[in-house]
Each structure stands twice: as structure tokens, then as C-alpha cells.
Computed example of a mutant assay.
Amino acid sequence: MSANPSVGRVRCPVCARPQAQCLCSLIPRLWPPTQVLVIQHPDEASHALNTARLLVPGLVNAHLLVTENLQEHPAWIRRLQDPQWRNELLFPGERAQVLAPAPADVRPRRLVLLDGTWRKARKLVYLNPVLQTMAQVCLPDGLVSRYRLRKVPQPGALSTIEAGAEALAVLHPGFDKHALLAPFEALIEGQIRAMGQARYLQNYGAGPDRAGE
């Protein structure tokens, strides 16, 4: 046994996985025209299976903002209110329009994703008026999550990295969503192998209510 109990728990600063299970070799460096901003609830930052930490490094023009209150980040509020950008919030709701390319709009596009449980994601919207005033979009129906370690709370619910990959594929036909999802697939497969198929089937027939991981 190591004299240092912290040895073996050192995590990669990029993907946040234990060093022995680092997924960075699978993370691409893609540059879609649309900028992505992931607003992560602080409670999600240390979640073992969080996928925002796999999504953002895979996109050159993506940003991860860990906060519950955007008032602490006035520069981002200004960016999200900038009329020279097409800013959209990817979040289902009554006023959400199905995501689609905007060939007639010459403005640069920014897509905002919320990373957290559904309850926390709704709280992020409630606490931040700038999110309430943004154009709201949703993914097309019929998408199925591959996050097999969680039972989705409703049809079409996806992990954060899946939502980002599917959204960019809709906006930019030909976008390589499979390259973006490669570390996520490896993460899930590795977790299932580690626990064994029998335990996986026993323990993950149900899961918590999560909007993104």
C-alpha cells in the first residue's frame, strides 16, 4: 500500500478522470462555426461521470462556465445580450423552437447548454434573467441517449455531451459528432467493464433525474 493515500486519486486537469483512466487521447479538436457555452451548476463540477468536461475540450470554440449566478460574470452577460450574435439557449420548453440551421443569418452563432439535473438547470434559468430573454431552442424528437449508466427521466433526454454533439450535427451537416462522442463512449464502456455486466444490469435499471452529466 502506498504511504501516500492520495496516490491513485490524482485526476487529469482536462477530462477530470483519474490519471490511469485519462480519456484525453480520444478527445478531438473540432472547430464548428457555432460557439458553445456550457453553464455548469457548481454541484456538477465534481460529479464522477460529468460529460461537460469531455465536451468542451473537444471544441476549439467552446467555453465552460461553472456558476449558479451569471451576475458574477458580467462579461458573459454582455456577450449573451450582444445583438451582433445569434445567442440561443438549448433548453426544452413551450416556447422552444426546434433547432435548425440559419443560412440567411450572417451573425455568428452561440449555443448555450446547461449542465446539471433538470431541477438545477431550471434553477439556473430562474436565477438568471439573461437566460430567460434568450431565444430558446430544442433538439428534434426521436433522439435516444447512449448514457447507459443513467435511466433518462423522459424521452429524448441526453447527457450534456450528447446534446452538444447532436445540436452541432443539426446546425452543421457533416459535423463529426462521432469523434466528439468517442471519449464519452469509452467512459461508459469502461465503467460497465469495471463493475461487471451482472452488477451493471442489477444497479442501473433506474437512475436519478439528470439533465446533463
Results as ranks from 00 to 15, higher is better:
Arg110Met: 06
Gln81Ala: 11
Met195Thr: 01
Pro28Leu: 02
Ala102Phe: 14
Leu23Lys: 03
Glu166Pro: 06
Pro28Gly: 03
Leu158Phe: 08
Gln197Cys: 01
Glu185Phe: 10
Val38Tyr: 07
Arg109Pro: 14
Ala206Lys: 14
Gln84Pro: 03
Gln202Phe: 01
Leu55Cys: 08
Pro103Asp: 03
Gln35Thr: 13
Gly156Glu: 10
Pro129Trp: 03
Glu166Arg: 07
Leu49Met: 07
Ala194Pro: 03
Arg122Thr: 07
Gly142Lys: 05
Leu99Val: 09
Val14Arg: 12
Asp115Pro: 02
Leu114Met: 02
Phe91Ala: 04
Gly116Asn: 12
Leu149Tyr: 02
Trp31Asn: 15
Arg79Val: 08
Glu72Asn: 12
Thr160Phe: 10
Gly93Met: 10
Arg95Leu: 09
Ser159Ile: 05
Gly212Glu: 01
His73Val: 14
Val98Asn: 13
Asn61Tyr: 06
Tyr204Trp: 02
Arg107His: 13
Leu113Trp: 06
Leu49Ser: 08
Gly156Ile: 01
His178Asn: 15
Pro140Trp: 04
Gly207Glu: 05
Ile27Asn: 08
Gly174Ala: 00
Ile188Ala: 00
Ser159Leu: 10
Gln71Asn: 15
Glu162Arg: 03
Tyr147Gln: 04
Ala194Ser: 11
Ser2Asn: 15
Leu113Phe: 07
Met134Arg: 13
Ala206Thr: 14
Gln71Lys: 15
Pro108Met: 05
Leu89Phe: 07
Val152Thr: 09
Asn69Ile: 01
Pro92Ser: 09
Arg17Gly: 04
Asn128Thr: 00
Arg95Gln: 14
Cys22Thr: 00
His47Asn: 11
Ala52Ile: 05
Arg193Asp: 09
Gly58Glu: 07
Gln19Arg: 14
Asn4Arg: 07
His47Ala: 12
Val38Leu: 10
Leu54Ile: 08
Thr34Trp: 09
Val66Glu: 01
Leu99Met: 15
Ala169His: 11
Ser2Gly: 12
His73Glu: 12
Leu143Met: 13
Arg107Thr: 10
Arg122Pro: 03
Tyr126Leu: 12
Ala135Ile: 11
Arg109Ile: 06
Lys123Gly: 05
Pro74Phe: 10
Phe184Cys: 03
Arg78Ser: 12
Ala165Ile: 08
Ala62Val: 00
Arg107Pro: 15
Pro33Glu: 05
Ile39Asn: 04
Thr117Met: 07
Arg193Cys: 09
Leu114Asn: 05
Val66Lys: 05
Val38Phe: 11
Gln81Gly: 11
Gly8Asn: 04
Leu124Ile: 02
Arg11His: 11
Glu166Thr: 02
Arg107Leu: 11
Gln197Pro: 02
Arg29Asn: 15
Pro13Cys: 00
Gly156Met: 02
Leu64Phe: 07
Ser6Met: 11
Leu180Cys: 05
Leu187Ile: 01
His63Leu: 03
Met134Ala: 12
Ser6Gln: 15
Glu44Arg: 07
Leu168Gln: 11
Ser25Ala: 15
